[in-house]
Write a protein that binds this DNA or RNA. Sequence first.
DNA 1: ATCGGTACCTGCACGC
DNA 2: TGCGTGCAGGTACCGA
Length: 264
Amino acid sequence: MPELPEVETVVRSIRPLVGRRIVTAEFRNLRILRGGDPDRMAARLAGRRVKEVRRYGKFIVATLDDGSYLMIHLGMTGRLLLGGDAGKHTHAIFTFDKGVLMFDDSRQFGCIEFHEQFPARVARLGPEPLEVTFEEFAAGLARRKTRIKSLLLNQTFLRGVGNIYADEALFRAGIHPMALTARIRKDRARKLHDAVVQVLTEAIEAGGSSISDYVDAEGRKGFFQIHHRVYGRTGEPCLACGTPIRRVVVTQRSSHFCPRCQKR
DNA sequence: ATCGGTACCTGCACGC
DNA sequence: TGCGTGCAGGTACCGA
């Protein structure tokens, strides 16, 4: 489900919780805690006020009033929902002095972690795609020895790009997903940098892409999926040239591309 | 140090 | 109707 635009939309939709106080935290599925102690977490969280909620790539980090941090990752199917009823896949329930936040995740690839210090995993991520300079971006391309699709998905290169937006950006830049990064010339690299920024910006404006189950914390779907040019369009005609869109697997992930518009 | 393959889960669509 | 297969927006971990 969630890549940068979806996580950004979720973060914006839970902003009303900033300034609110956590009354109780209930954890129903411990897998989500990745080894964290549920009782200790609940005790540390109770009474804390949310100072700030920020997004780092696909990670959500809430800063609490005592300087501790609550980190949330939505994985593939994670949802944060304000209010509503707990369901089969509701794994955590945060009750605030005003409002309730539920974490729902059918595949359980998401996680919730409590940290006394800023989480190291988040600190190790690469730059934000909407902030990275072209020079940094190009230096990253030249330094790696892999296929461009793999690099775009690598969160230490850029944080937040996932399978949908990698495919969409590569199409817009006219680059084949299997292209080796070191062989991409500067003009193409610049096109790719621009394409990443544009596609993410447009997707945020559309509230993200709702393929099957993504919704924001108010239950609203995104509508960027209607603007996808290659992702999920295998066999359908390329919107630029009419050639059927193809699907190849790169690093175990589906990649959708136009064989005519995207040369290696 | 980097890279690709694998594992982790559930649900859905499909063909038989 | 049910069963097997393959696929799905994610990252961590392992061995080469």
